[in-house]
Design a protein around this nucleic acid. Structure first.
Lengths: 143, 143
DNA sequence: TTTGAAATTAGGAATTACTCCTATATATTA
DNA sequence: TAATATATAGGAGTAATTCCTAATTTCAAA
């Protein structure tokens, strides 16, 4: 998928971030990933194009992106952080066997009300339904 | 809070786990925690009672507990694993400033339907709504 | 009860996933 | 184009977790 470079550069400008080839490459790689990759996975792929990019840069960049809201860190179970460039409101199904995360969309879930006792106490900035279970592939493997 | 030792021993038996003082202490400590603690935090507390318990045992034990469904690993953002002994269906609010996680209950959320295209493809074993935002304490701090 | 096999533990080493440090290089603005 | 503020690479350092192994403990059967 071609990314909208202009949009990306605008976002960088808005947050006073310099436009560097590494940042663009990292963002491209993440957008074109389907599996909510970790920094290490992005790093391995980027290395093929920029052989001496450093893992630290990939990590730092992905964290910067998440700070400015360009990507999100997926909610996981304490293993390596995984990143998600999908900013459209969506929800996750996670396979407890293989760890794969599948995005899905649901208007019903999007329009869930926040319980009023929480609304009074907290400022709510994000809402997501996380489902877990066994995906079709893993189910097939074990009959 | 007093834990139900009998219940705990039954669970251990059911899964062919031996009843050891460490396992009981670790479970007690977790149940009596209110902040979804990490293995390290549990370890520090247990050490006061069993000075030469090892961190590995705490980690291993908590993972074992999560495998048999006695506790759950809280969904987080890649930092140390945190554990939750609350098996009653509930949902989480996580403060993006301080990281604190608050359990809450909602019948509306509990009774959410699973989208049919997911139900067809996947076996769903768990469902949770995760809210994020800023908690009352952090809000107070910054006026 | 005692005994013995199998599971579990402590302690340290190893690994993994970051995160920090700093000299060099690069992007932007004047 | 030059100045300067950022960002990067590479390596060191740190945190969280997992692995390894010898010693210990649990528990079931005698």
């Amino acid at each position: 998928m071609e990314i909208d470079l202009k949009y990306l550069e605008e976002v960088f400008h808005k947050h006073n971030l310099k436009i560097t080839p590494q940042r663009i490459a990292i963002y491209k790689e993440l957008v074109n990933s389907k599996e909510h990759p970790s920094a290490m996975i992005i790093y391995e792929r980027i290395k093929k194009i920029y052989p001496n990019v450093s893992l630290d840069t990939v990590n730092r960049t992905l964290l910067t992106f998440s700070e400015i809201g360009l990507v999100r860190i997926v909610e996981g179970r304490g293993d390596p952080k995984r990143f998600d460039p999908n900013l459209r409101q969506h929800h996750h199904f996670r396979c407890i066997k293989c760890g794969e995360i599948y995005d899905f969309y649901s208007e019903e879930y999007d329009s869930l009300d926040i319980p009023s006792e929480l609304k009074k106490k907290f400022i709510i900035t994000s809402k997501r339904v996380n489902l877990e279970g066994i995906c079709d592939r893993c189910r097939a493997k074990r009959g």
